[in-house]
């Protein structure tokens, strides 16, 4: 009887130990406290990789109903205002990407039922490149892009 309990206790401590080892080895980084934050997508080095991780596919269709408002020339790449708006129904999520950044995926917005397909924020851009908006609807993935010329890169490199 005592032996059986010891077994259970041992099993428990082995399981806890292996989680600790995984954290220590960097397999599970502490940032994974947020279960929904997509580590693979946000650390991807290319747009297709990021989209595959985030939306399950990198096949996007260009759609001019997606309007990207951003400056033609950004003096300071550290602060580039970007607004994305669209005339599409059933928008589930909007992602904002700076295609030449070291990690291109900047933000992803999951919209609830009452949310309108509109987001506005300010992003960092390493150099002149396209700002890409990728929109997920019930009908698939749509995207549009706008080039922003960057005078001084904004990633502090």
């Amino acid at each position: 009887m005592i032996d059986a309990k010891r077994r259970i206790l041992l099993k428990g401590s082995i399981a806890a130990g292996s989680v600790g080892v995984a954290v220590g080895a960097g397999i599970l980084s502490p940032s994974l406290v947020l279960a929904n934050w997509n580590e693979a997508a946000f650390s991807a080095k290319s747009l297709p990789d990021a989209l595959s991780s985030l939306m399950g596919s990198d096949a996007t269709e260009t759609n001019d109903a997606i309007k990207i408002k951003a400056p033609d020339i950004a003096e300071n790449g550290a602060v580039v205002p970007v607004t994305v708006e669209m005339d599409l129904d059933g928008v589930k999520s909007i992602a904002i990407v700076a295609s030449e950044n070291q990690t291109p995926l900047i933000a992803s917005f999951d919209l609830g039922e009452s949310a309108m397909p509109f987001v506005s924020t300010r992003i960092k851009m390493a150099r002149t490149s396209d700002v890409v908006a990728v929109v997920q609807t019930g009908d698939g993935l749509f995207s549009n892009a706008k080039e922003v010329k960057v005078t001084i890169g904004g990633c502090g490199g």
Binding site: A78, T103, A107, F109, G112, S114, M116, F118, R122
Partner: peptide, 24 residues
């Protein structure tokens, strides 16, 4: 009730600005 959830990388500018719209 959750209207919107944003997930960000460090690519969002310092002292972030965010705007969004909803109905209801």
């Amino acid at each position: 009730e959750v209207v919107m959830t944003a997930n960000w990388s460090g690519g969002v500018s310092r002292n972030p600005y965010l705007a969004f719209k909803f109905t209801g």
